[in-house]
């Protein structure tokens, strides 16, 4: 069965059985997942070079709107997808945690680029060696910076996770920053 619930209405149908003519059934959790998947509101946490590539992702050529995610919100209370695009330094880490904690459930995190995922080639005294030390991450997108196609791929992967209600133990068992 398709997971996309569509309602068709045949006004001329003679049958009185609504179930066969005017409705299409699905499970409630699937309906919700479908809605969530197609209306991700990203918070672009762009701090460095990846932020510029993220602008390309939002721009006319790659157009994240095609995935239902064009409503960019800088308020954590209004968004459900945190896109961390760029290097997170030790100075920035508490701010990032603060923003993440302010987001309402359900919330997802996409780590864009090498720096956010692991510190990248900045094995240095002031750079956080991966944001997963302070917040749980759902999707890692590799690259320095990743191409917009790679970011779109990451978003699609996240959509699949949401659609299938995939368990997220890394988030459910999250105990807070390890540092």
């Amino acid at each position: 069965m398709s997971t996309v619930p569509t309602v068709t209405r045949d006004l001329h149908a003679e049958s009185e059985d609504l179930l066969t003519t005017a409705a299409y059934t699905t499970r409630f959790d699937k309906l919700v997942a479908w809605g969530r998947k197609n209306s991700l509101w990203p918070l672009p946490y762009g701090t460095a070079c990846c932020g510029i590539e993220l602008m390309s992702v939002m721009g006319p050529k790659y157009d994240l709107a095609r995935f239902g995610a064009e409503v960019v919100r800088f308020s954590p209370r209004q968004s459900d997808l945190l896109v961390v695009a760029g290097t997170i330094t030790e100075k920035m880490a508490p701010v990032l945690v603060h923003i993440y904690e302010q987001m309402l459930e359900p919330k997802y995190v996409l780590s864009m680029g090498a720096c956010a995922s692991s510190g990248g080639f900045y094995r240095a005294y002031h750079v956080l060696q991966g944001i997963d030390k302070v917040i749980p991450v759902d999707v890692y997108v590799p690259g320095c910076p990743p191409t917009p196609e790679a970011v779109l791929d990451g978003v699609m992967l996240l959509q699949k996770m949401i659609e299938s209600n995939q368990p997220r133990p890394w988030k459910d068992n999250w105990k807070g920053p390890t540092q």
């Binding site: 030790e90 100075k91 508490p94 701010v95 240095a124 005294y125 002031h126 956080l128």
Partner: peptide, 26 residues
């Protein structure tokens, strides 16, 4: 440039480039 809880001066030659110091709050 470094955060307010940072101790030491990182560009001195005796500071190890890979010695991170964590910042607990902004």
């Amino acid at each position: 440039l470094t955060h307010h809880e940072f101790v030491g001066h990182p560009l001195r030659k005796d500071y190890d480039s890979n010695r991170q110091q964590h910042c607990s709050k902004a």
